[in-house]
Design a protein around this nucleic acid. Structure first.
Lengths: 137, 137
DNA sequence: AAGGTCACTTGCAATATGAAAGTTGAGAGG
DNA sequence: CCTCTCAACTTTCATATTGCAAGTGACCTT
């Protein structure tokens, strides 16, 4: 499930999983309520589709997201956060707080993101989670 | 000072600065009290020196660290966190918390790291900061 | 049957990373 | 003076990752 780690350092190990240019951007997009491939491919940052497919497969392999069919004929999939993936929310929140303080002219943080908790994004949107999910509201 | 950003998203923008395999590992090492090139080059993760030199230059360019001579004849340098760099502590803390929860057999978090605040690592070790700095204690 | 959409996959050029060796400036030892 | 060492990079070159564009196949609509 996990790759070879550079060291047993927690910081370095977490980066062995998501320390690239796109993984956390993909996670952020799923937090934002975009669960389908074409929604994920349409982000403002213009991720190319080979990278997107690769990152989705990796994040699924690391247990951060799940892929499940939401219809058959044709079979279509949605990517959702696992608890492990949802627990990345504090990391993204702190990254965003840092950026808001130190890089000018960034987007402001929506309330569902700034005040959200990991639990609201797991297990499934629909019960408590849906209330703060931008696409369910 | 800053590069071209992929988008105005704070998360994506922060990753445009440090979203690679090594930048945050270098920052972590400086938080851990290693300030000199050979100390930074000697980390457990075996960073190669060309990458280290490049990341130090980039982090300095982004204003996250400063390079200053600590002696002359021969001139030798130390790298220290700026406030901007010290403010990355919460990001590293959350990354480490995630890894401790979700990846087995990682190092435990030293108290100076887990309970530290950004302010303790800035402006200079020596007054309040030195108290929690692992190499000063 | 023709055309369209979706979810990828492939090919290939451009860029980044990694390992190892080389360079520069200065002090130390003989 | 000549070599040796050390710190702090720099260079070289092989490998790996990323990016762009085009292609593929399953299924659906007309």
């Amino acid at each position: 499930m996990y790759p070879q780690f550079r060291s047993p350092c927690p910081v370095a190990s977490a980066l062995d999983l998501v320390g690239d240019k796109w993984s956390l951007v993909v996670l952020r997009t799923i937090f934002a309520g975009r669960h389908r491939y074409n929604e994920l491919a349409g982000v403002a940052e213009k991720i190319s589709t080979n990278i997107l497919a690769d990152r989705l497969a990796r994040l699924e392999g690391y247990g951060l997201i799940t892929k499940r069919a939401y219809q058959h004929n044709p079979e279509r999939f949605e990517y959702h956060l696992t608890q492990r993936g949802a627990d990345f929310l504090p990391v993204l929140q702190q990254l965003a707080i840092w950026a808001r303080e130190h890089i000018p002219d960034r987007w402001s943080l929506p309330g569902w993101f700034a005040e959200g908790t990991a639990r609201q994004f797991y297990p499934e949107p629909g019960s408590e989670g849906a209330a703060l999910n931008p696409r369910a509201g």
